[in-house]
Deep mutational scan, measured.
Amino acid sequence: MQFKLIINGKTLKGEITLEAVDAAEAEKKFKQYANDNGIDGEWTYDDATKTFTVTE
């Protein structure tokens, strides 16, 4: 399945997509990506659109 991450950071904004088996795997990958890029914020997930959002 394809999942999307919307980044609303203080210095980094944008979207990325990835393939994952389920939402838990996608969340783990997205949070690792955010951590690697210094993004720390409030996370939400919309199951209907398979979209994660992180807002700093």
Rank of each mutant, 00 (worst) to 15 (best):
K50F: 09
A48W: 10
A20F: 15
K29R: 06
E25Q: 09
F30M: 09
G38C: 05
I7N: 01
T55Y: 05
T55E: 13
A20G: 06
L18N: 04
V54F: 06
D40N: 15
K31M: 09
T11D: 04
K29Y: 11
K31L: 10
D46V: 14
K29C: 04
L5A: 03
L18E: 07
F52R: 00
T17I: 10
L12H: 13
E42D: 11
T55Q: 14
D36G: 08
T53Y: 11
G9C: 03
A23N: 07
K31S: 05
K28I: 12
L12S: 09
I39Q: 02
I7L: 05
N8R: 11
A23T: 13
T51A: 03
A20C: 04
T53D: 03
D40W: 13
G41Q: 01
G9M: 11
T53K: 12
E42V: 15
Y45F: 08
Q2I: 04
T11S: 11
M1T: 10
G14C: 03
Q2V: 15
T55S: 14
N35L: 14
A24L: 13
N35I: 14
F30I: 03
K4G: 07
K29E: 04
N35F: 09
K10H: 11
A48F: 15
N37M: 14
F3V: 02
L5P: 00
T17Y: 08
G9H: 09
A24K: 12
Y33S: 02
D36A: 09
G14H: 08
L18Y: 11
I6C: 04
E42A: 12
V54H: 01
Y33F: 05
I16P: 01
Y45Q: 02
T51P: 00
A23D: 05
A24I: 06
G38F: 08
F52D: 00
A34W: 04
F52W: 07
D46A: 07
T55R: 14
E25G: 08
E27Q: 15
E42Q: 13
K50W: 09
A48T: 14
I39Y: 06
K31I: 07
K31Y: 07
K10S: 04
T53R: 09
I6F: 10
K31P: 00
N35P: 01
N37L: 09
V54D: 00
K10W: 05
L12G: 09
K10F: 12
N37F: 06
I16V: 15
Y45G: 00
A24W: 13
G38Q: 13
E42G: 11
V21D: 13
D22Q: 07
K29I: 07
E42N: 08
K13T: 09
G9W: 05
N35G: 08
A20S: 07
D22G: 07
A48N: 15
A48S: 09
Q2N: 09
G14Y: 10
N35M: 12
E56G: 05
T11H: 05
T44G: 15
V54I: 04
T51H: 03
T55D: 13
Q2S: 14
Y33G: 02
E56K: 08
D22M: 05
D46P: 00
I7V: 09
G38Y: 08
K50P: 01
E25W: 04
I16W: 08
N8A: 11
I16A: 06
A34G: 08
L5K: 00
I6M: 04
N37S: 09
G38R: 11
G41K: 01
G41M: 02
A24R: 09
F3T: 01
E19A: 08
D47S: 15
D47Q: 05
L12C: 04
K4C: 03
T53S: 15
D22S: 15
Q32W: 04
E56I: 09
D22V: 05
L5H: 00
N35C: 04
Q2Y: 15
T11A: 12
E25A: 11
T44K: 11
K31N: 07
D40K: 14
E42P: 04
V21I: 14
L12Y: 13
T53W: 12
D36E: 10
F3S: 01
M1K: 13
Y45N: 01
L5R: 00
T55G: 11
N8S: 11
A24M: 09
W43I: 04
T51I: 08
N8T: 14
G38M: 08
T44A: 13
A24D: 08
E15F: 13
Q2R: 14
K29W: 10
A20E: 13
T55F: 10
E27F: 10
K28A: 10
D36N: 08
Q2C: 05
K4P: 00
Y45H: 02
K4H: 08
I16M: 13
D22F: 05
M1S: 06
T11R: 06
E19G: 07
E15G: 10
T11M: 08
A20Y: 04
K10Q: 12
E27H: 09
K29M: 06
A24V: 06
K13M: 11
V21R: 06
K4E: 04
I39E: 02
Q32F: 12
T17C: 03
T49I: 10
K50S: 12
A48V: 11
T11E: 04
I7C: 03
I6V: 15
D22R: 03
N8C: 06
Y33V: 12
A23H: 15
K13S: 06
L18S: 08
T51C: 05
T51L: 04
Q32T: 06
K13C: 04
I6P: 00
F3Q: 00
K29F: 09
K10I: 08
D36L: 08
E27C: 05
N37C: 03
D36V: 15
E56D: 06
D46W: 05
Y45C: 02
F30Q: 00
I6S: 05
E19W: 07
I6K: 09
L18D: 04
E56V: 05
G14S: 10
G41T: 01
E27N: 06
Y45K: 02
E15I: 07
K10V: 12
V21A: 08
I6D: 03
T17M: 11
D46S: 09
K29P: 01
K13R: 10
L18R: 07
A20K: 02
